[in-house]
Simulated scan of single mutants.
Amino acid sequence: MWNRVPPPARDAGLVALAALDAWLSLWNDTPLGLALAAIACGALALRRRFPLAVFLLTLPATLVQDIVVAPVAALYALAERSRDRRLLGVCVFLSAVAMAVHAPLNDDPSASRAWTLIFLLYNLATATAPVLLGQLVQARRDLARRLVEIEEAREHERELHAQAVLARERAQLAREMHDVVSHQVSLIAVQAGAMQVAAKDAGSREAARTIRSLSVDTLDELRTMVTLLRASGGASTELTPQPTLADLRRLVASSGIEAELTGDLPATVGTPAQRALYRTVQEALTNVRKHAPGATATVELWHDGDAVGVTVTNSAPSRLSLPLPGAHQGLLGLKERADILHGTFESGPTDQGGYRVRMRIPSRAD
């Protein structure tokens, strides 16, 4: 329900609450004290864009006024957005010190060193609470984002697995057509040719010639069908319109990680090979985002005359990753794609703690 409130309205409500807290707790009514309190309250409207600066602006007011809402809100906003725990620890200590020593700085005779120490410990606990809450909200947001990525990755793995199953079935059908049907049609053509030569009357020779001609045409069509089946499917069997190398740049740019695309490939690369290379990059970048948070990646397209390929290398993760479930079908599907196109597929960790995926496909693969 709170998320349905527009951000400007939330900002105005928080500033008003901080101003009410400052007014009720006001005991330094000098122009300087009033100005510092007004700056601390007004700065809360900018806490989303400049959380550290807003927190620093609340410190002077905390030194001279007994305010709570402004520093606590500033600490929460900083903790919700920052991943630097040492910075958060320093800010907690500064806030606690500012709230504990403001009385001695204003020459309050009732304050003493013992009470200052007690106030410091109490305010340390007070300042730690919004930081822990902000970190919890940040972790919850990261977990929700990671769950969405997991579901997308699992859906992608299911799609690749379904395509791999279809590819295996097409390959088996191609073998049957080549080994059985093509062989039998070839025998028919040979027998028809022999009959055409041996026939005595013109009608028999014409019938044999027709049978032989139809058999040869059927063999040509069978070869075309076998080639299409071995090409891992066409537009009529794919689940969605399939991407090509022209879509790689958009894929890398929208991957959600810091990735760089280098190299190029000849314009003569076949459509099945383009799809295989695209899926390799897609799967590799998905795995980087899923298993190596904070890592950077390099996508390198290359060709050596006899083959074309792509190599995707990522650096070591900069943050710990959550243990994520997976069906482990993505890389298996890529290896099956490479096998269908008579290519090779390799994957494994690097010496620098990252991971490398490499697919190589013959230039004439179609």
Rank of each mutant, 00 (worst) to 15 (best):
A9I: 10
D11Y: 04
A12F: 02
V15H: 02
D21R: 02
L24D: 08
R48F: 01
L57T: 08
P60H: 04
Q65M: 14
I67N: 14
R81H: 01
R86G: 15
L88T: 02
L88D: 00
G89V: 03
V92Q: 15
A96G: 07
V97Y: 03
M99T: 02
L105C: 06
D107Q: 11
D108C: 04
S110F: 05
A114C: 00
L117R: 06
Q135Y: 00
L143Y: 13
V148H: 11
I150F: 08
E152L: 13
L160I: 12
L160N: 09
Q163C: 00
V165S: 03
E169I: 03
A171M: 07
A174I: 11
V180H: 10
S186E: 15
L187C: 02
I188G: 03
V190F: 11
G193S: 09
A202G: 00
S213Q: 11
D220G: 10
E221A: 15
R223K: 14
R223Q: 13
T224F: 06
A231R: 09
S232D: 10
S232P: 05
G233H: 06
P241I: 07
Q242W: 03
P243H: 09
L248C: 09
R249S: 15
S254M: 14
S255P: 03
G256R: 12
E258S: 13
P266R: 04
T268K: 11
T268N: 14
G270Y: 08
A276S: 14
Y278T: 00
E283W: 00
T286P: 07
V288K: 06
R289T: 04
T296S: 07
E300L: 15
W302S: 14
D306M: 00
V308P: 06
T311N: 05
P317L: 08
S318A: 07
R319N: 02
P325S: 10
H328A: 12
L334V: 08
K335H: 13
K335I: 01
R337E: 11
H342D: 13
S347M: 00
P349H: 07
D351N: 04
G354N: 01
G354Y: 01
Y355V: 02
R356L: 00
